[in-house]
Design a protein around this nucleic acid. Structure first.
Lengths: 116, 116
DNA sequence: GGGGAATATTCCTGTCAAGGAATATTATTT
DNA sequence: AAATAATATTCCTTGACAGGAATATTCCCC
């Protein structure tokens, strides 16, 4: 039976793979902020801040709470948990435990022989 | 003094945020493979496989070993370690420990009062 | 050294995403 | 209800990037 590894959502990664959005995430790590504050602190224009926040929100990285006519954005834990578990599933790579190269070379050679 | 958090390399994320490259990474988790095998297993044309591998290689996600006229690609541990430590630095978010929303709202109110 | 296998590179094209500017929407205050 | 503040949305343009096709490069083997 095939081993079951965590699947990483591509959209989470591409959402984070944009400098301004990454900055927003870094900024929000210390707590929730309004759109205006985010725009200010990152020297973004308000519309761009809203757009990036929408993308982060659509991907579940962030959640909104309406407070009067402000919107307070904060990080959601789920995507980070997912990412953590995905990375953890590469522990064998990180520990460099299985140096499969030699073994692979042997297999390659055998396959070649059998294909002569 | 400001708290020092791990910095996540954007290029690592964007390199992973592409379906074919993510598939390559998933494929390589079980061990090194040649370009041809990668292309075969993922039904990619050889040039596209090479191009994606170059990007992964340029970003240090993968390393190459030349073996005759084949190139054997394998995962490098570093980017995963970096990613792991970055995600870990969001542990407080994942544990949902600091529910800063209430506190933030109070601050907001105070600031507004002081700006009257 | 010529032929073929494995891989890399180049050029072209189409698509998509990000920023700018303007405008729409929603809530608040008087 | 008009004015203002905070935020969202739309439209447009431009740049980056992925795929296709062709070609270049490198290596092995006879």
């Amino acid at each position: 039976m095939p081993r079951q590894n965590p699947v990483m959502d591509m959209t989470t990664l591409s959402a984070l793979a944009e400098p301004n959005r990454m900055s927003i995430v870094e900024l929000l790590r210390d707590g929730p902020l309004t759109v205006g504050e985010i725009a200010d602190r990152l020297s973004l224009r308000q519309p761009q801040a809203s757009k990036h926040l929408k993308i982060l929100s659509d991907n579940g990285i962030v959640e909104v709470k309406a407070e009067a006519n402000r919107r307070i954005y904060r990080l959601r834990p789920e995507p980070f948990l997912t990412l953590e578990s995905w990375v953890e599933s590469f522990r064998h790579v990180m520990q460099d435990r299985f140096d499969n190269l030699e073994e692979y070379l042997r297999k390659l050679q055998n396959k070649e022989k059998s294909e002569l």
